[in-house]
Amino acid sequence: MNGDPSLPTYPTPGEALRLDRVTKSYGPRRVLDEVSFALGRGERVALMGPSGAGKSTLLNCIGGIDRPDSGDISVAGQSLSRLDGDGLSRLRRRAVTTVFQFFHLLPTLTAAENVAFPLQLLGVDRADRERRVAELLAAVRVDHRADAWPDELSGGEMQRVAIARALAPGPDLVLADEPTGNLDSATGDAILELLARLGDELGFALLLVTHSRHAAGICSRSLHLRDGRLCEGPFEA
């Protein structure tokens, strides 16, 4: 597990993610077909495509939850194919974090504790942890709800807390899986604005999975996945 209990720092510019000819099949069906692309540090990229195009599989492979059949994935210069189960767990603890459509806050932890939890896993001491949690909750503007339980929060508040939790370990890469899909449009806009702002401030790379061209608007470019193949192009509003 983590051997460095110091407070994580946000990454410096460089390459956050590289996929090289990643292929994945389920039975006879090829879900990802030689997908290659890279994300620079601090870059925001939208991943779009119809249902069943392979977006979730790609995200799972990048997060180290699923393994590609062939090809290689590197996060912050580290090849995932060389990591075992524990290594991948370590990766998810620090380098790659995820913001989910359905928030997935731990129900027994308050908002602040949810944000602090990844830092506790990393062994960050209490004072640093509390400082970082306070900063993050303030940054996502739910510091007034720090002691609330998840079931006392609105959908927008839950997603803000989830974003703060994802940012707590100072990741190189944040995977956002339809983060506004379960929110009304006004709240969704606020969440997108928040992700963009924090991305600019903290410098993490963001891979945003979305069906919405509007949501993709916060990204500098978009990738289109269709039948497991990738086609890259400038975003068209």
Partner: peptide, 12 residues
């Protein structure tokens, strides 16, 4: 779901 979240957060 709590276990699943813990797994996502890097708990083995």
């Amino acid at each position: 779901s709590e276990m699943a979240i813990l797994r996502s957060l890097g708990v083995g």
